[in-house]
């Protein structure tokens, strides 16, 4: 009897171990270049999220574009960095897409306000719109300046990836040996680590300047 229980326990444990591995294996396979399972995941998730996203956004094309933005973030985190998948990836993805949509909507509304004010009151709005536009332009210029500074601060390896992969357009698969990486995955990781450091540099310094 106790032997049967032990077998049952082992069986259940194996079963439980198997469950989370399914989702993890999708992302692991994709990181090794086998994207078949990921593509199936992409389609199922889209089928699940298309109705609420379309309901939220309106035009289905915009909903799909938003979804693809969310997927590119998910790809970077779960496939490239191999982070643990959340309990419910599609629900998480929905929130990410929704926040992105809200952020775009906010920016668009600001633009619209500028436009509307020009329509209604020419005299005051000229001043207002130019102020607003100036602030937007200034923000863009600040980001560009920080990007340049951030790139200048990059390590030599990061600069090599930027030059050969991003500027010259060479594929990472043809570069990893040449640049002395252990594997293709290693150079992909390196690329995204450089990106992360750049993003952190921009964030930290933009905050410092605003204080």
């Amino acid at each position: 009897m106790s032997g049967n229980r032990a077998l049952l326990f082992i069986f259940q444990t194996l079963l439980n171990l198997k469950r989370p591995a399914t989702l993890t294996s999708i992302f692991q396979d994709a990181s090794r270049g086998n994207e078949a399972a990921f593509n199936a995941f992409l389609k199922t998730t889209w089928e699940e999220l298309a109705p609420p996203l379309t309901a939220l956004v309106g035009p289905p094309k915009e909903a799909r574009e938003l979804f693809l933005y969310g997927i590119s973030i998910l790809w970077e985190q779960l496939v490239v960095h191999q982070r643990m998948a959340p309990q419910n990836p599609s629900a998480y993805l929905f929130v990410v897409c929704k926040n992105e949509w809200l952020s775009r909507k906010k920016q668009a509304t600001q633009g619209q306000l500028v436009y509307d004010s020009v329509q209604f009151d020419h005299q005051t709005s000229d001043l207002l719109s130019s102020e607003e536009l100036h602030s937007k332009e200034a923000q863009q210029q600040e980001m560009e300046a920080l990007l340049k500074e951030g790139i200048a601060q990059c390590s030599d390896k990061c600069k090599q990836i930027i030059e050969l992969h991003l500027v010259q357009g060479r594929k990472l698969k043809s570069l990893w040996k040449e640049l002395g990486y252990e594997s293709y995955q290693a150079i992909v990781q390196a690329k995204y680590n450089c990106k992360k450091r750049l993003s952190n540099y921009i964030f930290t310094n933009s905050r410092k300047r605003k204080r």
Partner: peptide, 11 residues
């Protein structure tokens, strides 16, 4: 988000 996006677009 803005910092992420700037780096994301560049990369």
């Amino acid at each position: 988000h803005q910092s992420q996006k700037t780096a994301h677009d560049f990369y």
